[in-house]
Write a protein that binds this DNA or RNA. Sequence first.
DNA 1: ATTCCACAGGAAACAGTGGTCC
DNA 2: GGACCACTGTTTCCTGTGGAAT
Length: 400
Amino acid sequence: MSDPIDRLLDAAESGKSIIRNRNILHFTYIPDTILHRNSEQEQVTQSLIPILKQSHPSNLLVYGKPGTGKTLVVKKIISKIQERVEKSNFPIRLVYSNSKEETTLYGLLVSIGRQLGLKKEELPTTGLAISEVFKRILEKIDQNELNVIFVIDEIDYLAQLVTKTGKDILYQLTRANERLKNSSLTLVGISNDLTFKEKLDPRVISSLGEEEIVFTNYNVDQLKKILEERINEAFMQGSVEEPALNLCAALAGGEHGDARRAIDLIRVAGELAERQQSDTVTEAHVREASQKIEENKEEASLKSYPLHEKLVILAIMKANGSSTGEIYTSYKNLCKVVGRDGLTQRRITQMLSEIELSGIINGRLVHQGIHGRTKKYRLTISTEMVKKTFKDDLTLQDVV
DNA sequence: ATTCCACAGGAAACAGTGGTCC
DNA sequence: GGACCACTGTTTCCTGTGGAAT
């Protein structure tokens, strides 16, 4: 009798692979035709055309929900312009940065500076005043006579960072051209949040929102087209069943027409099907994939929490559906068990709202008359999931 | 009609870290 | 080596609130 592991490996080796090309199953892979964003591509191109004419265009704002291809379109068009302009001896420099990836305003500015070629000695990663960092970036641009396009993804986060620190960097960015002598700066902001402009300083709105382009959500038919094209290239002929394709499009369309999610779904479903040595991807695989993606998200976010947040989640688990006060008492007990000092109730209240944002718990404000008002929280994920994930944490082993 | 509970959640201040600049 | 800066995670202090109880 052969070793079961060998048997598995043998089977996997002899079974045929239904995925031909994995790369195509990543959202960020863009074959030229696959975006289905013709009118948006035209709009973006048009508003950036002044660069070709060697005058700097007005600032541009691009809106669209996640997975609508807005970043990909912007990047693609700018790199096309770059190619043309290179020949004409009028250099432009593309600087891309994602506000969500940088946790601080300082970090964002430094990432921009690095892309412009500022070394660590010229622009240290900490210690300077924000205005100083900004000044150095502008000096560099002017010195090298660059025509720069700043693409700032998730610019709503930047706006948040700015309001937090009280600096008006956004305003200065939009008006930077007034300070530049031999160069130019164009700002392309990308945002998921259509309402984000309302929170901005009116002075910023007037210069930033000169041009606006909205990427509408994909509908189910468009998602189907996108999936079909990718499937044709990425899978073996006929290995994805029609109902599976439809389900993928429907699931992703049910959220806000997120092509990234649709493509993720079909990729994971394909991988599952391969692992199970199935010749085709079926509806069942897609459902399984959807569940798996969900679980992975939950697990990853549970794991990423620091100790006190984990304790709070455990406290909610132990007293499911209870009020902030009860959760706090439960949390204090847990702290005693693991031998840590408990934080204040104010901080725990804040943590609860933070955790709620991630969707792991659900809060409901209740007014109990003379018994005051409180918020009642319950877990939205299974307790098994929490236990399973926290078991690996040494300090938590006793309390799980 | 008034009181009063049990918090929610904003604002500000603070401590500590890790850095620059002169 | 002291003044200064950004930033995080926290504490302290505070005002506001809907409806049961009186």
